[in-house]
Nucleic acid binder design. Structure first.
Lengths: 225, 225, 225, 225
DNA sequence: GATGAATGAGTGTTCATTCAT
DNA sequence: TATGAATGAACACTCATTCAT
C-alpha cells in the first residue's frame, strides 16, 4: 500500500482548492451577496460540471471554506501559544482565546450566517491539541490528572456547552473566565493560581497578520496589502 | 388638514409591523436558514400578495428589520447615557460605545451578512442626538465650538470613515479610543482630560435586558425569557 | 316610465367614459406596453375599486375602447358617404371602404393584437345602416330586391366571411373589389355598371382629421399638434 | 484557429431555433393570446429551464421572431428586385416598397404591438444592400455620387425619419412617393425621370409566396399551404 | 476527469379580482 | 357608490443538480 499522494491526487487537490479559494474570495469580495456555482467555477476558470467532481453539494464548498477559516484561526492560536511554556498558562490562554473567538470572530459568524450553516459549527481548539496540552501538564506533574483521555472529553464537552450557552445569552460573557478557572482547578491547579492565570490579559482579538509594532500610539495597521 | 392617522392608516401600520416581526422572528429562529416570502406571510397569517402592499421587494423587509435592530441599539445607548451628566463624558462614552458596537454587534453583522445588505449599513449614533450633545457642551462652556452644525458634520464624517476603516482592518481597534480622544480635543477638551476620559472603562457590550445583579460571581444571566 | 337619463345616470356615464379614455390613452401613449388596472384608475384619478363598478373584467374596458375605435371608424365612413347620393355608389364605396379598413386599419389591428381579443372582432359597417342602404336602393327602384332583410343578411354574412378569408390570406386582396361587384349584381345592377363602380377610386385610408388640402404637392399633414 | 461550428455549436443552434419556431407558431396560432414561457418550451418539447440557456428574457425570443419576420420581408424584397436591372428603378422600387411595408405590414405591426416592443423596431432595407445599390448606380454612371458611404448614410437617416413621421401621421402617405423622388434627384436623376419612376406601379403588398397567375379574374390565392 | 446542455423545483413579483368599510 | 386592503393564481426567472459526451 502506497500512501504517498500520486501526481493525480496532487492535481485533484489543486483543482479542489482552486474552487474553495474562488468561493471564499467571491463571498468576501461581494460582501455576502448571493453567489452561484457558476460564479464560482467562472472565477476558478473551470467548467461548471467540474464543481461536482469535487463537491457533492453547494454547501460542501462552504463547509470547506469554514475549514479554511478554522485553519487560519488555528494558526493564529499557534502564534499566541508559541512563546508559552507553562502548561497551566497554555491551557488558560488557549481556553479563553477559543471561548472569546467563538463568540466574537466576525468573519466566522458572518460567513456562517451567510451560508445558512449556522448552528452546526463551533470555532474550537483542535481536540488532539487539547489532549496534548493536558498530557504535557500531567506528565510534567503540573496537573493532577488520572485519565487524560477522559479529562479531555469532559473539558471539551464543557467548552462546547458553554460556548453555545454564551452565544444564546443564557450565560454572561464573564462565564468565559469562570469556565477557564474551573478547568484549571479540575486539572489540579490551586484556585488562587487559577484565578490569577485567568485574569491575566489576553492577546488581541482577530490578530492582524504581522503587526510588528502594536504599541499604544500606533493605531494604524502597518500592513500595506 | 388632518394629520391624525386614520383608522385605515392604523390598520396599515399594524399589518406592516406584523410582517416585519414575522420576518425577524423567522430569521433568528431558523438561525439564518433560507427564508421565503411565503414563509413570512404564513407566519404572519397573511396572504402572500399582502406582503407586496407593504414592501416593494424582499430586501425591504430586511431593511425594516435592520431599522428595528438599530432602534434596539439606540435604546441600549440611551440606557447607558441616562446617568451621565458631563457633556465630555457623554461624548466620550457615546463615541466609544458606537464605534465598538459598529464593529462587534454580532446580531447586526450576522443579519447583514445573511440579508446580503452588508456594506450599505453602519450602526451609528443618531445624527440629531450627536448634534445635541455638542450643542449642550458648547452652551455650557465645556466645549469650545464656533459652529455647532459644522463641527457635527466633521465628526460624523470622521466616525463613518473610521468605522469602515476598522472594519476593513486598515485601522487597528485601538483607533476607536484614539478617535474619541481626537474628537474631545477638537471640542476643546485639554488632552490630559481627553485621554483620561477615553481610558475610562466602557459599559459591557450588548447589554442584557435587565440583569439587576451583574456582580462578579454571578455569571449566569438571571434572565429566564 | 321615464327614459331620460337621470343625473345619476349621467354621472355614471361620465365616470365610465373617464375610465375608457384613460385606458385608451395609456395604451397608445405607452405604445402597447403592459398596462394594469391600477394604471388606468390612477390616470383616471379614481380609486382602484371603482373600476369594478363599471367593468366586470379588464378585457371589458378594452372592448369599450374597441367600441370607440369602431365609432371613430363609422364617423369617417359617414364623412365619406355624406356627398354620395346614388344607392349603388353608396353600397360600392361603403363595401369597399369597409373591406379595406377591416384589413388595413393599423390602430384597430394593433390594439386587437395587444389586447388579446383578436379574432373576436371585425371592423364592419353598422348592420342597420347596411339595411337602410339596401332599402333605399330598393324603394327608389335602383335595386331589384324582394326581401330587404333577407338580402341584408346574405350580404352581411358574405362580407364577414370574405373579410376573414382575406385576413387569413386564403383570398387575395383583389377579392375586395370582386366581392363588391358581386354584391352590386346581387342587387340587380348590370355587370358593366357594377364593374365600373367597383373600379372607381376609393377615398384615402385612415383619413387624417382635417386635411383641407390633400393636393399632390402637399404631403405634409397640415396638422400641427 | 478553428472557425467551423463544433457539434455542440450545431446542437445549440438547433435547440435555439426550435424555441424561436415554437414561439412564433404559438403567437400566430393563438392569435395573440397571452403566451407563457412554459407554453413555448412545452411546444418545443424542452424543459422550462432550457429556455434560459438561450434567451436572457422573454422579450429576447420575441426579438428573435422579429428577426425572422425581417428575414422573410427581405426575401420578398429580393423576389421583387430580382428582375430589375436599372439602378434607378431598383432604388425607386426598393425605397417605396420598404416605406410602404414599414407602414402596412400587418404581421409585423401586430406582432410588435403584442410583444410590447413597439417603437424599438422599424422594418427597413438592409443597410449594406442599400449601399450596394447606390454603388452600382454610381459606377455605372447612372448616379452622380461623390462619396457613396456618406450618401448612403444620408439616405438611411432620411428613410428612418420619414418612416417614423408617417407612422405618427405627421406626414401623409404621399410622402412615401415624394421621398423616393427626392432620393432619386439626390442621386443625380433628372426630376422628370425621377417623377416617372416614382409613379410606376408597385408590386402588391405582402406578396403571396408563389401565385403564378395574379390575373384580374383570379382573386382566390392558388396557394394551398 | 472535464465539460456544459438540459432540467424543474423553487421563489420573487405582478396583478386581476374580491370584499369589507 | 367609492375605496383600497387583502388575496392567490400565474408567471418570469434562478440555479443547484444531473448526465451524456
Amino acid at each position: 500500500m502506497n500512501n504517498e499522494p500520486s501526481r493525480l491526487d496532487l492535481k485533484r487537490e489543486k483543482t479542489r482548492s482552486t474552487l474553495v479559494l474562488a468561493a471564499k474570495q467571491l463571498v468576501f469580495e461581494r460582501e455576502y451577496q448571493k453567489i452561484s456555482i457558476q460564479d464560482i467555477t467562472d472565477k476558478a476558470q473551470l467548467g461548471l460540471g467540474t464543481f461536482y467532481n469535487y463537491f457533492e453539494t453547494k454547501n460542501d464548498v462552504y463547509k470547506a471554506v469554514l475549514e479554511e477559516l478554522k485553519a487560519k484561526f488555528n494558526q493564529e492560536l499557534d502564534g499566541i501559544r508559541a512563546p508559552l511554556v507553562d502548561p497551566a498558562t497554555i491551557i488558560s490562554v488557549t481556553t479563553q482565546y477559543c471561548l472569546r473567538e467563538a463568540q466574537d470572530n466576525r468573519e466566522w459568524h458572518e460567513f456562517l450566517a451567510f451560508s445558512g450553516l449556522k448552528g452546526e459549527y463551533i470555532l474550537r481548539q483542535d481536540e488532539k491539541q487539547c489532549r496534548n496540552d493536558i498530557e504535557k501538564g500531567a506528565s510534567s506533574g503540573r496537573f493532577k490528572v488520572q485519565d487524560v483521555d477522559f479529562t479531555t472529553q469532559l473539558i471539551i464537552g464543557m467548552l462546547n456547552h458553554v460556548t453555545r450557552e454564551i452565544a444564546e445569552k443564557r450565560l454572561k460573557r464573564s462565564a468565559m473566565a469562570e469556565t477557564t478557572r474551573h478547568i484549571l482547578r479540575m486539572l489540579g491547579i490551586p484556585d488562587p493560581v487559577a484565578k490569577a492565570l485567568t485574569q491575566a490579559p489576553l492577546p488581541p482579538m482577530a490578530a492582524p497578520k504581522k503587526s510588528s509594532s502594536d504599541a499604544d500610539s500606533a493605531f494604524i495597521h502597518s500592513a500595506s496589502h
